[in-house]
Structures are given as structure tokens and as C-alpha cells.
Design a protein around this nucleic acid. Structure first.
Lengths: 258, 258
DNA sequence: GACAATAGTTCCATTGAGCGGAAGAGAAGT
DNA sequence: ACTTCTCTTCCGCTCAATGGAACTATTGTC
């Protein structure tokens, strides 16, 4: 903490201060704290403290003990997650590049976080015209192939909670916008073993994804391309390659040192 | 991360989302990211991303690599700090209670964080009228005894940075409000081996503090009381007891399992 | 050295995101 | 049943935060 006692940003943002105050407190109270205790310690108005805690909970930086209802640090704050992710990315890299070279399109790994899909690896197509998210970019579960394969591995109840919490925004005329239709799509996905974003997130983009099973978190592997280059006819071949790469990635992860 | 895929808080706070987005990104980029990369990944306007990063840096949730200038997770995010703190609090508890019982006033441990003093342990006097901060409460370095003993252990340059970043608010007529006077006070503190908040933070409160040396972070131990009960004449005895307790605490910490 | 491009930093008029008090609901204790 | 305390919800209001633009610094190329 005093590794650098330097201070003063010149850019105080009250909300950031408040988040940090709360996270600081949760760090020094590993057994958890009540809302009243948070209020007292941070001197925030109670309703503000409550809203912040819920917002942090939604992003898994805080969680609630089921029995006591006390707030404590959440999974997002646990370093093992970062380590596990780092490990996955390391293991996956060779297979990702190989896959990218085989299909000549952008390949991605996405993981579930706070009810959204985060792109944690993006190996871009070398073509000029390409569909490519950036590392760290987030997308909704309901309109992305990655989101679909991830959601297909979750209990339906949890899927519905995510959908109602995040909404089902319409990106294109093809976007699935009702929970019922989405749940039906997930049944299809689970059966087929892969998902397609068929012009649902972008009018001219198509994406195919398969799950990465057996990891300590929900993740998927996908190929994304302009729709002109990835037709529905071409999907089966891409799926075959995705599944082969997914198998290689998971095997490499399982073999990697802890 | 998917330990609980539950989502949806009903209380989105955009600023909290933004903090979490940035922290998420920093977690998956251990070598660090540039402002431009943060901007791209989070889709924040550049100046907003910049301000958030600086605000997080001020609270040590982010830091900058001295050579590359890249932002990465800061010390506040490192679990070993929480563990070290937890360990200190555990070791200190018996000595704190004993000290509280001896002096019959509230005893505190404070640590430096983001240019302020955080109370991380507060064992309250059993008297009805008492001066007692709460765990997690923060105070300014310049007007607290804990702040003084901590600052006395820092390079003067760093002290000045803290003072200019946080300001030197006037709490009472006795508050030291210029950097020059404060630096002189610190020289006195360093020489004496203890510090007094002599009605500087509160009109009717007095506080005596000694450093806790040899810890992996800057910390101090203090006794706080209504001024009517802690006269200047009584300070030397309290200092003796504080130093004895500080020695016991540090010894216990050093002996405790890692 | 000159120029261009890019990254980082600062500023401020504007406004809507966030606020916090109050009310309501729930839980616990007598 | 009543009281007290904690947790949860709501909404009119305002000011903290915003983000675009300008400026500064750095890097790369010729």
C-alpha cells in the first residue's frame, strides 16, 4: 500500500471515490458487512450506499452471504479469476492462431461476466474487411453467438434473470427480442452443440460459436466474419474446425500447470 | 466468475459500471494497457477514460508502469494487502484490548491509503462519553495523530504531494494548515517518536499516536479521548503504554505464520 | 530539422445521471 | 400487538460528471 505513497490525481470523481471506499472496506472485512455498517464507515447516505453495493454486486465485485445477508468482496475481485483467465489465454493462443489461419476470419474467446459476454481474446483476420471486436469489449448474451452458447450452458432461470436485468435490445431486424424465443433458441443450440449469430448483432455480420466446456467459468469460442464471406452453407465446416480447436484449447488448459 | 451467474441489480449506476469495466480490463491485461486501448475496449470517450484511470490511480486501484506509461492494476487490488491487514488485525487484537483496558480510552490502528489515514481497528472505550472513529473511517494526514506518525515515516516530497493533493482543511483553530508548519511538526514527531492531535481534528478531542514500524505498509497505533480526560500532562504515560503495545503488536505480527 | 500522426492532458458550458430524503416493507425483539 | 431497527423503493431536483475540443507531448518518417 505504501509502495508508492504518491497521491493527488487532480481528477477526483466522487463516484469513483465511493466505489473505492466501499471496496476498501470490503477488503478489510472478510466476514462481510451490513448495509448499516457500510453506511457508517463510508459516511454515505444509506440509499446511496445501498445502490452502490447493488451495482457492485451486479458486476460481482460484491456479493451477499446467503445466510447473513452481509456484503463481502465478490468473485470479480478474486485474483484466481484473473489467473485462470491468463492461463486460458496462454493455452489457447496457438490453437487460436491456427484456427484463424485455417478459416481466415477473426476468432474470439468470450466469457460471461455480470450477465454479459466479454471478449477476452481476439485474433483478427488478416483480411482488410473483417468483423472484429476488441479485447475487453462486451456484448449482450441474447444477440451474440458467444452469448448463446454460454447461456445454453446455464439454468434457464439464470438466463431469464440476465435477460430481464439487461433487457433484449434490438440491434437488427433479426435480433431475438423475447425471452421465450431466446429460450427456444437455446434449446436448439444445446442440441446442435453450436450457436449462430445470424445477422442478429450486425446487419452484415455472422458469427458461429461453440462452448469451451470444463473450464471453471462459462466461456465460448467463435469465428466472426462479414456475412458475405460466411454463408449459412459454410457454417458446418466452420463448426467442425471450431469444435476441434475448442477440444485442443480445453486439453491444453487441463494439462497446464496450476 | 460464473460461481453465480445471477445478474440484474435493478440499480445500474453508470459510473460504477465504468469503474468495473476498467477494472475488468486491467485484470485481463496484466502487462498493462494504454489510454487508447482502454478507450477502445471500454468505448468510453478518451477524456472520460483518462479521468477514471487517474481517479483509480489516486486510490491505487490502478498504477502506471514507470517505463511504458501503461496502466495496470494497482496495489489496492492486490490481495496480499488484505491478507497482511487481516493478519495484523488478528495479531493486534489482544494487545489492543489490553491497552484499551489499561488506558480506558479508545484505541485505534490506522494505515495510509490513497493519501489518507484509514481506521482499520477501533477498540472503543467502555465509557459512555468517548471519542471513537469507526472501522473504515478516513481522516486527513495533516490533522490526525495517526496521520502525523505515518507522515513522519515518509519522504518529505511524498508528504508535500499528499498535502497539495488533498488540501489542508481547517477543522479547528488548532489545525495545522500550512505545509511548512506541518513539515516542522513532523520533524518534532520523528524526534519524539510520537505525535499528538492536540484539538486539531476536534475541539474537544485529543489523540496520541506512535508508529508501528517494520510492517509492509505505513501504520500507526493511537489512543483517542475527550480532551477533558486526556490532558497534556497525561500524555507521557499514554505514550509509554502505546510504545509497549506497539512493540508487542509488531512482534506478534513478525511471529505470525505467513 | 520539419512535419505528420498519435498519445496523453486540460478545460468548461451543459445537462441528465445520480442523488438522498422520505416512505414503505421486512425482520427481530419484547 | 407494538416498537425498533434494517433493508428496499421511489422520484423531483440539481450539481457532479460529462465529452468534445483544444492543447501539449511524444514518436516516427523523410
Amino acid at each position: 500500500m505504501n509502495e508508492s505513497a504518491k497521491a493527488g490525481s487532480g481528477y477526483p470523481i466522487r463516484a469513483v471515490e465511493r466505489v473505492c471506499d466501499i471496496l476498501d472496506l470490503l477488503q478489510i472485512e472478510p466476514e462481510g458487512v451490513s448495509l448499516v455498517a457500510v453506511t457508517a464507515a463510508t459516511e454515505l447516505p444509506k440509499s446511496s450506499a445501498y445502490r452502490y453495493l447493488l451495482a457492485l454486486e451486479a458486476r460481482q465485485y460484491a456479493e451477499r452471504d446467503a445466510d447473513t445477508g452481509l456484503f463481502r468482496l465478490g468473485p470479480a475481485y478474486r485474483p484466481q479469476r484473473a489467473r485462470q483467465l491468463g492461463r486460458l489465454l496462454e493455452c489457447a493462443h496457438p490453437a487460436l492462431e491456427q484456427l484463424r489461419n485455417k478459416v481466415n476470419e477473426t476468432v474470439n474467446i468470450g466469457v460471461l461476466d455480470g450477465g454479459e459476454v466479454v471478449h477476452v481474446a481476439v485474433i483478427e483476420s488478416q483480411q482488410m474487411m473483417r468483423l472484429a471486436a476488441r479485447v475487453g469489449e462486451r456484448g449482450p448474451v441474447h444477440a451474440t453467438a458467444l452469448g448463446k452458447v454460454i447461456a445454453a450452458g446455464m439454468p434457464e432461470e439464470n438466463v431469464r434473470t440476465i435477460l430481464s436485468g439487461h433487457g433484449m435490445r434490438t440491434f437488427t431486424p433479426a435480433t431475438i427480442v423475447t425471452a421465450e424465443a431466446f429460450v427456444r433458441e437455446l434449446a436448439r443450440v444445446a442440441k446442435l452443440g453450436y450457436a449462430i449469430d445470424d445477422l442478429e448483432a450486425q446487419d452484415d455480420g455472422r458469427c458461429v460459436a461453440v462452448p469451451l466446456p470444463g473450464l471453471p467459468f462459462l466461456a465460448g469460442l467463435s469465428v466472426s466474419a462479414p456475412s458475405s464471406r460466411l454463408s449459412n452453407d459454410g457454417v458446418p465446416l466452420v463448426v467442425t474446425r471450431l469444435k476441434k480447436a475448442a477440444t485442443a484449447i480445453v486439453k491444453a488448459y487441463e494439462r497446464s500447470p496450476l
